[in-house]
Amino acid sequence: MASPWGVWTYNRISDIASRIFFVLIIFQIPLFRVQCRSGMCTTPIQVTASQIIANQIFPQPVVKALLYPGAVVNGMFTNMTIPSWGNLFSMYNLTNINNVSAVVDLHRLEVLAGSYFTVAGALIGVLKSGRMSMFGTLLVVWGLVKEGILGKPATTDPDKTVYVYPTMVIALICAVCSVKYNPKNATRKTAAQPIAKPLKSSAKSKLK
Rank of each mutant, 00 (worst) to 15 (best):
T187E: 15
I25W: 06
R12C: 10
N98R: 13
T118Y: 00
N93S: 10
A49E: 01
I29A: 04
V141P: 02
L24W: 06
D159K: 14
S18R: 09
L24Q: 05
Q28A: 04
A203F: 07
A192Y: 12
D159R: 11
A171L: 13
T81K: 12
L31H: 07
W8F: 10
T43E: 06
I57F: 09
A113Q: 04
V104Q: 08
N74H: 13
S38D: 03
I20T: 06
I25C: 12
V126I: 14
L106D: 04
V111M: 05
A196F: 12
C177P: 02
F117M: 15
V145A: 14
F117L: 15
K204V: 11
I20D: 00
G70L: 07
L199D: 09
Y163Q: 13
N55K: 10
T43G: 04
P83Y: 07
K206Q: 09
L127Q: 05
A171H: 11
Y165L: 07
V176G: 03
S3C: 01
A102L: 09
P44S: 05
P158Y: 01
G151R: 03
V119F: 08
A154M: 09
M132S: 08
A49N: 03
G136R: 04
P59K: 08
P44L: 05
V145D: 00
S14N: 08
S202R: 13
L144P: 02
A192C: 01
P61M: 03
I53K: 15
A171S: 10
Y116G: 06
I149A: 05
L199C: 01
G121D: 00
A191H: 09
T42V: 06
F135E: 06
F135V: 15
L112P: 00
N98T: 13
V104S: 07
M76R: 07
T118G: 01
S38V: 00
P153L: 03
P4I: 02
A49C: 03
R188T: 10
I52Q: 09
L67D: 03
L106A: 08
A17G: 02
M168N: 07
T156N: 14
V62A: 14
L138Y: 07
L123R: 01
Y165Q: 11
A186N: 07
L139A: 09
I170H: 04
K200I: 12
I82F: 13
D15S: 11
T48L: 15
K146I: 08
M1A: 10
L144Y: 02
P166F: 02
M76A: 14
G130N: 13
K189C: 04
A102N: 11
E147W: 00
F58R: 02
S18N: 11
G143A: 04
A49V: 03
K206T: 14
P158L: 06
